[in-house]
Simulated scan of single mutants.
Amino acid sequence: MLRFECDYGEGAHPKILERLLETNLEQTPGYGKDEHCERAKTLIRQACGLPQSTIEFVSGGTQANQIVIAAILKPYQGVVCASTGHINTHETGAIEATGHKVLALPSKDGKITAQQIAKLCAAHWTDPSHEHTVQPGLVYLSQPTELGTLYTKAELKAIHQVCWQRHIPLYIDGARCGYGLAAPENDVTLADLAQLSDVFYIGGTKVGALLGEAVVIPNLAIQRDFRYMIKRMGGMLAKGRLLGIQFEVLFEDGLYFQLGRRAVEQARRIRDAFQACGVELAFDSPTNQQFPVLTREQREALARKYSFNHWADLEDGRSVVRFCTSWATTPQAVEELCRDIHAICGQA
């Protein structure tokens, strides 16, 4: 069965495995204080245009979200996000387990707006009994979103402005950052993310690494003592170089960006195949996730050969499903899928 249900099921890019093998018996300082981590941080700082930013490596996305949010929020504060946000739907209460409430805002396309955030904050602070409710203390976005959609630079600027006016940090989850950067419609760079957020992370797990995320912290106040929180929450690896080596490989020759482009190109072929057959797409995703709306017969026929995610059922009996490509998805696999899409979903 060909799998299109996630974008991180494969292991790691061969260049990463080769470097890990080459450096396997090196004796280096632990806990991310080795030369590989330092070089990887230098490369990321150059890509972000932030020579003074702090960068820390952790093993996974949920761990990154837990650590960042716990490090920023005071005990009585919560984190604002879209109702479809990863921390609200797919992290098994990980954020609530830190003692902080997720303050979810409604969203049809996976995004929230500056106006929504401003309205939420105004409602809190104009409430005479606001001390009895959770204070909004952080805004969480993901780029791309859970629905594969992208914030534009103008949208991020507007949200950043509201956060700055309200003295609320802005945190951007970049688990699929490489795929967002690669989308032709995207107008946001790593340098933009660095300028328009207080913290963001560059996802490696989903974009070629065996595991690992690079947390980039432009905000000086958040930089201070951040490593204490990494240690406290079990995120500080003794063999920290294993994370640094992977990001060293991903960023030294632009491999990270190449892998993102490869996945997006294959996803667009899948999108074009569905559209050519008149299949509706639930969301306008320009990235590596595509959400066709299929009849029960179409879904069952494709499921005999392909693994993909069920997303939602519609009132008319159709279902929204998700097909994901990854850095390792082959053109041959996509070609085969496209042929079957035309055979199963095309007009007779």
Results as ranks from 00 to 15, higher is better:
Leu138Glu: 08
Pro128Ile: 00
Ile168Cys: 14
Val162Asp: 02
Arg166Met: 15
Tyr140Arg: 04
Gln161Asp: 11
Val162Phe: 07
Thr149Glu: 11
Pro128Met: 06
Lys153Cys: 05
Tyr151Glu: 13
His160Ile: 12
Gly148Thr: 04
Tyr151Asp: 00
Val134Glu: 07
Thr126Val: 06
Val134Cys: 13
Glu155Gln: 15
Gln165Gly: 07
His160Met: 11
Glu155Cys: 06
Gln143Asp: 13
Glu131Val: 10
Leu147Asp: 08
Trp164Met: 14
Thr126Ile: 10
Trp164Arg: 14
Lys157Tyr: 02
Ser129Phe: 12
Ile159Ser: 06
Ala158Glu: 15
Ala154Met: 11
Gly137Cys: 06
Asp127His: 12
Gln135Lys: 11
Gly148Asn: 01
Pro144Glu: 09
Tyr140Asn: 09
Lys157Phe: 02
Arg166Asn: 15
Pro144Lys: 10
Ala158Asp: 06
Asp127Phe: 09
Arg166Trp: 14
Leu156Asp: 14
Pro128Glu: 05
Tyr140Glu: 05
His167Leu: 08
Leu156Asn: 12
Glu131Asn: 07
Leu150Pro: 09
Leu147His: 12
Tyr151Ile: 05
Leu147Pro: 04
Ile159Tyr: 01
Asp127Cys: 12
Gly137Arg: 03
His167Ala: 15
Gln165Ile: 11
Val134Lys: 02
His160Asn: 15
Glu155Thr: 05
His160Phe: 15
Val139Lys: 05
Ala154Gly: 05
Lys157Ala: 15
Val162Glu: 14
Pro144Tyr: 06
Glu155Ala: 07
Gln161Gly: 11
Leu156Glu: 12
Ser129Tyr: 03
Thr145Arg: 00
Gln165Asn: 14
Thr149Tyr: 02
Lys153Ser: 03
Glu146Ser: 10
Trp164Cys: 14
Ser129Gln: 13
Glu146Cys: 09
Leu138Arg: 07
Gln161Ser: 14
Gly148Ala: 00
Val139Pro: 05
Gly137Trp: 07
Leu147Ile: 11
Tyr151Ser: 11
Lys157His: 08
Ala158Phe: 00
Leu141Ile: 08
Ser142Lys: 04
Ser142Cys: 12
Ala154Leu: 08
Gly148Pro: 01
His130Val: 06
Leu150Glu: 13
Thr145Gly: 06
Gly148Leu: 03
Gly148Phe: 01
Gly137Pro: 05
Gln143Gly: 03
Thr152Arg: 13
Leu150Gly: 08
Glu146Tyr: 00
Thr126Cys: 10
Ile168Arg: 02
Cys163Ala: 10
Thr133Leu: 14
Gly137Asp: 06
His130Leu: 02
Val162Ile: 15
Lys157Pro: 01
Leu147Tyr: 10
Leu138Gln: 01
Trp164Thr: 15
Leu141Phe: 05
His130Ser: 09
Asp127Gly: 08
Glu155Trp: 07
Leu156Arg: 11
Val139Ser: 04
Ser142Phe: 07
